[in-house]
C-alpha cells in the first residue's frame, strides 16, 4: 500500500513533538559512560552490540553533541566508515566484529533524551495500569534494547474527520491526537504539560515517511548533521495547525493505585489541515 494521509500525519506529528519538547524544554541531558556488550536475538548475528545504560540518544545535531563514533580499550576510534551503526533509539552501537573493551562513545559526553518517545495504538488503561516499565538508567550495565523505558511519552492518533471547506473538494481535516506522559517526578510532568499547553496555534510541516531521518537499525539515514528544522524546510505544502490543546493529569489519589511510582499526564491535541482527499 502506498503512503496515506494518516501515515504522513503520524510521522510528522512524532518528529515535531520530539523536537518541540527538546527545543522548548531542553529536555535532554549530557551523559557519559561505558558501552556494555549485549546480546540481541533480533539483530544479525554478525554484529557485536555495545549498549549504553540509557535509551534514546539525541540524534538532532542542533541540540548539541551526538554520538558519532566509539573508542575501544586500546584507544582506537571507529566511525561509520569502519562499519559502525549507531542505534540512536536504543542507545547502542552495532559493529561487524568484536571491539576491545571497555568501549566508550565518541564524544565521551553526549546527549540523551529526557523522555523516550513512542507511538502506540494501546489504550490509556493498557499503558498506565498493565504495562511494566524500566526506569531511566541502569547503573550497572546496559539497558535492554526493546524494553519500554520511562520517562516516556506515548503518542497516538484518536480519530480523523473531514468537513467540506471550499468549492472544488477542499476539506478541513481534523485530527485528534493524544499524548500520555509518564514522568518520574511532578516537576518533569508539569514541565511537559506546560510546554504543550503553550503549543496551541503552532504549526508543523507535513513530512512523508520517506523523510523520516532514522533507518531500520535506528541510525541516521543521511549524514550525522541531521536537524529537524533542516528536514522540515525541505517540505512545502500546507502545514498542520494546532487548533486546541488540553492538558490534564492523574490525581494523587489515582496515582496511589499504580504499581509503578509514575506521574501521569495527558495532552489532547485538536489539529487541523486544509487538504484534498487522498493527498
Amino acid at each position: 500500500m502506498i503512503e496515506q494521509f494518516q501515515h504522513k500525519f503520524t510521522n510528522s506529528f512524532m518528529l515535531w513533538f520530539d523536537n518541540f519538547l527538546m527545543t522548548k524544554g531542553q529536555a535532554y541531558e549530557s551523559v557519559s559512560g561505558e558501552l556494555y556488550p549485549v546480546l540481541d536475538e533480533r539483530a544479525d548475528s554478525d554484529y557485536s552490540i555495545y549498549a549504553s545504560s540509557f535509551k534514546e540518544w539525541v540524534y538532532d545535531s542542533s541540540m548539541g553533541d551526538i554520538v558519532t563514533g566509539v573508542i575501544d580499550g586500546s584507544g582506537n576510534t571507529y566511525g561509520r566508515n569502519d562499519g559502525i551503526i549507531f542505534d540512536y533509539n536504543n542507545g547502542r552501537t552495532l559493529s561487524t566484529g568484536a571491539l576491545i573493551e571497555p568501549v566508550t562513545p565518541l564524544p565521551a559526553t553526549y546527549l540523551k533524551k529526557e523522555f523516550n518517545i513512542y507511538f502506540t495504538n494501546d489504550d490509556e488503561d493498557d499503558l498506565i495500569v498493565d504495562r511494566k516499565y524500566e526506569f531511566g538508567v541502569n547503573d550497572t550495565g546496559a539497558i535492554a534494547p526493546y524494553d519500554l523505558v520511562v520517562p516516556a511519552v506515548f503518542l497516538s492518533v484518536n480519530g480523523v474527520n473531514n468537513d467540506p471547506l471550499a468549492f472544488g473538494g477542499e476539506q478541513e481535516t481534523k485530527v485528534t491526537a493524544k499524548a500520555v506522559v509518564l514522568a518520574e517526578h511532578p516537576f518533569q510532568l508539569d514541565g511537559v504539560l506546560s510546554i504543550f499547553a503553550d503549543s496551541q496555534d503552532e504549526v508543523f510541516k507535513s513530512i512523508p515517511m520517506s523523510g523520516h531521518p532514522i533507518d531500520e537499525n535506528g541510525d541516521l539515514k543521511g549524514a550525522l548533521d541531521y536537524t529537524y528544522t533542516g528536514l522540515a524546510s525541505e517540505y512545502e505544502g500546507k502545514p498542520f495547525y494546532i487548533n486546541n490543546v488540553t492538558t490534564s493529569k492523574l490525581t494523587q489519589r489515582a496515582l496511589k493505585e499504580l504499581t509503578n511510582e509514575l506521574y501521569v499526564g495527558f495532552i489532547d491535541f485538536d489539529i487541523q489541515v486544509h487538504r484534498f482527499r487522498f493527498s
Binding site: V129, T246, S248, K256, L258
Partner: peptide, 28 residues
C-alpha cells in the same frame, strides 16, 4: 473526571472515555 485533574467526564461522554477510571477504582 474523578481521577484526572483538567479532564471533564461530560466532555468525555462526547469524545471518548477510557476504562482507566474503572480500573483504578477496582484496584483501590
Amino acid at each position: 473526571m474523578p481521577w484526572a485533574i483538567g479532564r471533564s467526564w461530560a466532555q468525555g461522554i462526547e469524545v471518548g472515555i477510557s476504562g482507566l477510571g474503572y480500573l483504578l477504582r477496582k484496584k483501590a
